[in-house]
Design a protein around this nucleic acid. Structure first.
Lengths: 185, 185
DNA sequence: TGAATCATGTAAACAGTTACATGATTGG
DNA sequence: CCAATCATGTAACTGTTTACATGATTCA
């Protein structure tokens, strides 16, 4: 819910533009990089937001001729765009993350699955977390101070992935332990 | 992305119907309860999904006359609905949780805020996590075996909230430490 | 030569939210 | 008496995804 300002996705795009002039193509690549971990609009959504930002006076578009590449449109944030982003940033009511966790939903409905299927589900989740952890562990946060909070964000990713893996291992052990109990009754 | 089956939200509704015959009103209350922590469609979405499930043959509707309450429509899952839910449950490709975390997005854009604003943002997140933790700590998982995996889900909520609080405290300390460094330069 | 990358966009559909409309009954 | 609860739905809108369309260039 926003009173009058920009949406979170518009804020994300404006924030990326604030790092420098970018084309839609650049933005989709940027989004697939680090930002994509916590915000990843579809490519088509980026292309649909960009002209809206121009209409609103939050960005300007400039055509760039290229010799060995297709011509492109680059977008630059304007003062009004910066102001709109600042407003979003300073709004203390950050919208809540949507309560959408298909992994937990499936586990909640686990009573309609076999125990083996539930265990397999948890193990799949664990494997995904382990893969994510391995990916995150590759990243060396830059110490240049250019993106001062990237290290903290990375850190949360690591903490979360490790905690999930520990939880998953415990969960599997518990389920298997209760299976043994039942089979000995 | 689903090949041919039902969506996660439809699965959630069918799963809830599998616990017993329910009205749309019952479902929105159930959703606001425990399930809402990881899946919470809007009330209007529930009312729009229900007739679709009936059309697809996954549920049947029955009108109930009530004396001291408005009449209501209750829905019961059918065999075909159970089969559709089973298919969704046994599909190993559980969709990924959407990468949407407004909290992290704002932190990522923290370089365009004052340090104080960033700290305030993290503290707000911490407060929310603490409130959630307190709520979760009230819940005593039922040991009847009716919902065998509720305890595990609760446990993940507790683990996650506690990990977030620890991360937030560390983050605030780090930001304030680096502020002191800079101010002494 | 063929896959990947560069580059931009449209169309159609689906998912999801907010707000509105209505009205009886219960309980403090 | 007033707020909350019971109860169902529609309308309008925003957000988001998937798929399609097009075509040049680079690199293995």
């Amino acid at each position: 819910m926003r009173a009058s300002g920009i949406s979170s996705t518009e804020a994300a795009i404006l924030g990326l533009l604030r790092l420098g002039e970018q084309s839609g193509y650049d933005l989709s690549k940027l989004v697939r990089g680090s930002v994509g971990y916590f915000w990843s609009p579809a490519q088509s959504q980026i292309y649909s937001i960009l002209p809206r930002l121009v209409d609103a006076g939050f960005a300007v578009r400039r055509g760039v001729r290229q010799a060995r590449r297709p011509d492109k449109q680059v977008y630059r944030i304007t003062k009004r765009g910066e102001a709109a982003l600042d407003e979003w940033l300073n709004d203390s009511e950050t919208e809540a993350a949507p309560a959408k966790n298909p992994f937990l939903l499936k586990l909640f409905l686990g009573e309609f699955m076999s125990r083996e299927a539930v265990v397999a589900h948890i193990k799949r989740g664990r494997a995904e977390a382990a893969a994510e952890l391995a990916e995150l562990e590759q990243i060396r946060p830059d110490t240049s101070g250019a993106h001062p909070y990237d290290g903290l964000i990375l850190d949360w990713g690591l903490v979360r992935a490790r905690a999930f893996i520990r939880w998953a291992d415990r969960a599997v052990r518990e389920i298997e332990a209760s299976a043994n109990l039942v089979s000995r009754e």
